[in-house]
Protein backbone atom coordinates (compact mmCIF):
# COMPACT_ATOMS: atom_id res chain seq x y z
CA UNK A 1 0.00 0.00 0.00
CA UNK A 2 2.81 2.40 0.83
CA UNK A 3 3.67 4.40 -2.23
CA UNK A 4 0.30 3.68 -3.76
CA UNK A 5 -2.15 4.68 -1.05
CA UNK A 6 0.10 5.21 1.94
CA UNK A 7 -0.88 8.17 4.02
CA UNK A 8 2.57 9.72 4.02
CA UNK A 9 2.98 10.49 0.33
CA UNK A 10 -0.60 10.47 -0.97
CA UNK A 11 -3.46 12.85 -0.33
CA UNK A 12 -7.13 12.22 -0.86
CA UNK A 13 -10.01 14.35 -1.98
CA UNK A 14 -12.00 13.11 1.02
CA UNK A 15 -10.54 11.89 4.31
CA UNK A 16 -6.92 11.41 5.36
CA UNK A 17 -6.44 7.74 4.52
CA UNK A 18 -7.60 5.24 1.91
CA UNK A 19 -10.07 3.46 4.17
CA UNK A 20 -11.93 6.55 5.36
CA UNK A 21 -11.88 8.07 1.89
CA UNK A 22 -13.25 4.83 0.41
CA UNK A 23 -16.11 4.57 2.90
CA UNK A 24 -17.25 8.16 2.37
CA UNK A 25 -16.81 8.05 -1.42
CA UNK A 26 -18.63 4.72 -1.67
CA UNK A 27 -21.52 5.95 0.46
CA UNK A 28 -21.98 9.01 -1.75
CA UNK A 29 -21.63 6.95 -4.93
CA UNK A 30 -24.16 4.40 -3.68
CA UNK A 31 -26.63 7.09 -2.70
CA UNK A 32 -26.38 8.97 -6.00
CA UNK A 33 -26.80 5.77 -8.02
CA UNK A 34 -29.63 4.51 -5.82
CA UNK A 35 -31.59 7.73 -6.13
CA UNK A 36 -30.98 7.82 -9.88
CA UNK A 37 -32.27 4.27 -10.16
CA UNK A 38 -35.51 5.29 -8.48
CA UNK A 39 -35.91 8.07 -11.08
CA UNK A 40 -35.11 5.94 -14.15
CA UNK A 41 -38.80 5.62 -14.94
CA UNK A 42 -38.87 9.32 -15.76
CA UNK A 43 -36.38 8.71 -18.57
CA UNK A 44 -38.47 5.81 -19.95
CA UNK A 45 -36.09 3.27 -18.45
CA UNK A 46 -36.86 0.30 -16.17
CA UNK A 47 -36.95 1.46 -12.55
CA UNK A 48 -34.06 0.00 -10.54
CA UNK A 49 -35.10 -0.17 -6.91
CA UNK A 50 -32.26 -2.08 -5.28
CA UNK A 51 -33.52 -1.15 -1.81
CA UNK A 52 -36.74 -3.10 -2.28
CA UNK A 53 -35.05 -5.93 -4.18
CA UNK A 54 -32.68 -6.47 -1.23
CA UNK A 55 -35.61 -6.24 1.14
CA UNK A 56 -37.54 -8.93 -0.74
CA UNK A 57 -34.46 -11.15 -0.62
CA UNK A 58 -34.11 -11.08 3.16
CA UNK A 59 -37.73 -10.59 4.26
CA UNK A 60 -39.51 -12.58 1.57
CA UNK A 61 -41.97 -11.41 -1.07
CA UNK A 62 -45.14 -11.77 0.98
CA UNK A 63 -43.77 -9.85 3.98
CA UNK A 64 -42.22 -7.24 1.70
CA UNK A 65 -45.47 -6.63 -0.19
CA UNK A 66 -47.42 -6.42 3.08
CA UNK A 67 -44.90 -4.05 4.74
CA UNK A 68 -43.40 -1.91 1.97
CA UNK A 69 -41.87 0.72 4.25
CA UNK A 70 -40.07 -1.84 6.42
CA UNK A 71 -38.99 -3.70 3.30
CA UNK A 72 -37.56 -0.52 1.77
CA UNK A 73 -35.65 0.48 4.91
CA UNK A 74 -34.25 -2.98 5.71
CA UNK A 75 -33.33 -3.55 2.08
CA UNK A 76 -31.82 -0.08 1.92
CA UNK A 77 -29.53 -0.76 4.87
CA UNK A 78 -28.33 -3.96 3.20
CA UNK A 79 -27.95 -2.26 -0.18
CA UNK A 80 -25.98 0.70 1.18
CA UNK A 81 -23.78 -1.62 3.22
CA UNK A 82 -23.07 -3.64 0.08
CA UNK A 83 -22.28 -0.48 -1.86
CA UNK A 84 -19.83 0.72 0.78
CA UNK A 85 -18.13 -2.69 1.04
CA UNK A 86 -17.73 -2.92 -2.76
CA UNK A 87 -16.27 0.59 -2.65
CA UNK A 88 -13.75 -0.37 0.03
CA UNK A 89 -12.75 -3.44 -2.00
CA UNK A 90 -12.25 -1.14 -4.97
CA UNK A 91 -10.17 1.37 -3.04
CA UNK A 92 -7.95 -1.01 -1.09
CA UNK A 93 -7.58 -3.91 -3.54
CA UNK A 94 -8.72 -3.22 -7.10
CA UNK A 95 -7.46 0.36 -7.44
CA UNK A 96 -3.82 -0.31 -6.48
CA UNK A 97 -3.78 -3.70 -8.26
CA UNK A 98 -5.01 -2.19 -11.52
CA UNK A 99 -2.36 0.49 -11.25
CA UNK A 100 0.30 -2.17 -10.85
CA UNK A 101 -0.78 -4.42 -13.72
CA UNK A 102 -1.92 -1.78 -16.23
CA UNK A 103 1.01 0.56 -16.69
CA UNK A 104 -0.91 3.48 -18.28
CA UNK A 105 -3.06 3.57 -15.14
CA UNK A 106 -0.09 3.47 -12.75
CA UNK A 107 0.15 7.21 -12.10
CA UNK A 108 -2.17 8.53 -9.38
CA UNK A 109 -3.98 11.20 -11.37
CA UNK A 110 -7.67 12.17 -11.23
CA UNK A 111 -8.16 10.91 -14.80
CA UNK A 112 -6.63 7.51 -14.02
CA UNK A 113 -8.61 7.30 -10.78
CA UNK A 114 -11.76 8.08 -12.73
CA UNK A 115 -11.02 5.43 -15.37
CA UNK A 116 -10.46 2.86 -12.63
CA UNK A 117 -13.82 3.78 -11.11
CA UNK A 118 -15.59 3.33 -14.45
CA UNK A 119 -13.91 -0.07 -14.92
CA UNK A 120 -15.01 -1.08 -11.41
CA UNK A 121 -18.56 -0.03 -12.25
CA UNK A 122 -18.46 -2.28 -15.32
CA UNK A 123 -17.14 -5.17 -13.22
CA UNK A 124 -20.02 -4.77 -10.75
CA UNK A 125 -22.46 -4.54 -13.67
CA UNK A 126 -21.27 -7.93 -14.92
CA UNK A 127 -21.49 -9.44 -11.42
CA UNK A 128 -24.98 -7.99 -10.94
CA UNK A 129 -26.31 -9.01 -14.36
CA UNK A 130 -24.66 -12.42 -14.60
CA UNK A 131 -25.07 -13.62 -11.02
CA UNK A 132 -27.04 -11.48 -8.56
CA UNK A 133 -30.12 -10.81 -10.66
CA UNK A 134 -30.54 -14.20 -12.43
CA UNK A 135 -29.49 -16.39 -9.50
CA UNK A 136 -31.17 -14.55 -6.61
CA UNK A 137 -33.88 -12.23 -7.91
CA UNK A 138 -35.01 -14.59 -10.70
CA UNK A 139 -36.00 -17.52 -8.44
CA UNK A 140 -37.43 -15.09 -5.87
CA UNK A 141 -39.84 -13.57 -8.40
CA UNK A 142 -40.68 -16.85 -10.13
CA UNK A 143 -43.88 -17.44 -8.05
CA UNK A 144 -45.35 -14.15 -9.33
CA UNK A 145 -44.33 -14.90 -12.94
CA UNK A 146 -41.68 -12.18 -13.18
CA UNK A 147 -38.61 -13.51 -14.91
CA UNK A 148 -35.12 -12.13 -15.10
CA UNK A 149 -33.62 -14.23 -17.86
CA UNK A 150 -29.98 -15.05 -18.47
CA UNK A 151 -27.77 -12.00 -18.00
CA UNK A 152 -30.79 -9.83 -17.20
CA UNK A 153 -32.21 -10.00 -20.72
CA UNK A 154 -35.89 -10.33 -19.83
CA UNK A 155 -36.66 -8.54 -16.57
CA UNK A 156 -40.44 -8.54 -16.33
CA UNK A 157 -41.89 -6.79 -19.39
CA UNK A 158 -38.46 -5.50 -20.41
CA UNK A 159 -35.95 -7.02 -22.77
CA UNK A 160 -32.31 -6.16 -23.16
CA UNK A 161 -32.94 -2.56 -22.08
CA UNK A 162 -32.88 -3.80 -18.47
CA UNK A 163 -29.31 -4.99 -19.02
CA UNK A 164 -28.22 -1.61 -20.42
CA UNK A 165 -30.11 0.25 -17.70
CA UNK A 166 -28.23 -1.85 -15.14
CA UNK A 167 -25.03 -0.77 -16.90
CA UNK A 168 -26.18 2.85 -16.59
CA UNK A 169 -26.84 2.39 -12.86
CA UNK A 170 -23.43 0.86 -12.18
CA UNK A 171 -21.71 3.45 -14.37
CA UNK A 172 -23.20 6.20 -12.20
CA UNK A 173 -21.79 4.37 -9.17
CA UNK A 174 -18.38 3.88 -10.78
CA UNK A 175 -18.12 7.44 -12.07
CA UNK A 176 -18.88 8.94 -8.66
CA UNK A 177 -16.59 6.48 -6.88
CA UNK A 178 -13.74 7.19 -9.31
CA UNK A 179 -14.18 10.95 -9.00
CA UNK A 180 -14.45 11.01 -5.21
CA UNK A 181 -11.93 8.33 -4.28
CA UNK A 182 -9.03 10.16 -5.86
CA UNK A 183 -5.60 9.60 -4.31
CA UNK A 184 -2.93 11.89 -5.76
CA UNK A 185 0.73 12.46 -4.85
CA UNK A 186 1.02 14.74 -1.84
CA UNK A 187 4.15 16.50 -3.07
CA UNK A 188 2.66 18.05 -6.19
CA UNK A 189 4.02 21.43 -7.19
CA UNK A 190 0.66 22.83 -8.25
CA UNK A 191 -2.03 24.06 -5.92
CA UNK A 192 -4.26 21.40 -4.47
CA UNK A 193 -8.01 21.40 -4.42
CA UNK A 194 -7.93 21.77 -0.65
CA UNK A 195 -5.41 24.58 -0.49
CA UNK A 196 -6.84 26.50 -3.42
CA UNK A 197 -10.45 26.28 -2.33
CA UNK A 198 -10.05 25.92 1.41
CA UNK A 199 -13.07 23.70 1.71
CA UNK A 200 -11.49 20.26 1.76
CA UNK A 201 -13.53 17.63 3.53
CA UNK A 202 -11.65 15.95 6.35
Amino acid sequence: MEGEHGTSDVKFLIGRNAGKSAVIAAFIATHVATMAGLWFDGARLPKFDFNNLNGYLVLGLSYGFANPAINFVVGGVIHYTSGIIWGVIFALIFHPALGRFVKPLHALTPVNNFIKGVIWGAVLWIISSAFWMPLLIGPLFQPINVGVGPFLTSFGPYGIQALFTNLFWHTIYGVNLGLLFSPTPAGGSRGTWRSSSGVGVR
Binding site: K11, L45, P110, N113, Q161, F164, I172, S182, G191, W193
Partner: peptide, 27 residues
Protein backbone atom coordinates in the same frame (compact mmCIF):
# COMPACT_ATOMS: atom_id res chain seq x y z
CA UNK B 1 -35.43 2.86 -27.92
CA UNK B 2 -34.93 2.26 -24.22
CA UNK B 3 -31.64 0.44 -24.84
CA UNK B 4 -30.33 3.42 -26.79
CA UNK B 5 -31.56 5.84 -24.11
CA UNK B 6 -29.76 3.82 -21.43
CA UNK B 7 -26.55 3.56 -23.47
CA UNK B 8 -26.73 7.24 -24.41
CA UNK B 9 -27.11 8.35 -20.80
CA UNK B 10 -24.27 6.00 -19.83
CA UNK B 11 -21.91 7.60 -22.33
CA UNK B 12 -23.03 11.09 -21.27
CA UNK B 13 -22.29 10.34 -17.61
CA UNK B 14 -18.88 8.90 -18.52
CA UNK B 15 -18.10 11.89 -20.75
CA UNK B 16 -19.04 14.43 -18.10
CA UNK B 17 -17.12 12.48 -15.44
CA UNK B 18 -14.07 12.27 -17.71
CA UNK B 19 -14.12 16.04 -18.19
CA UNK B 20 -14.54 16.68 -14.46
CA UNK B 21 -11.63 14.35 -13.66
CA UNK B 22 -9.42 16.13 -16.19
CA UNK B 23 -10.49 19.56 -14.93
CA UNK B 24 -9.72 18.63 -11.31
CA UNK B 25 -7.10 21.13 -10.08
CA UNK B 26 -5.30 18.42 -8.11
CA UNK B 27 -4.05 16.97 -11.43
Amino acid sequence: GESLIALGLTFIVVGVGFFLAWANPTA
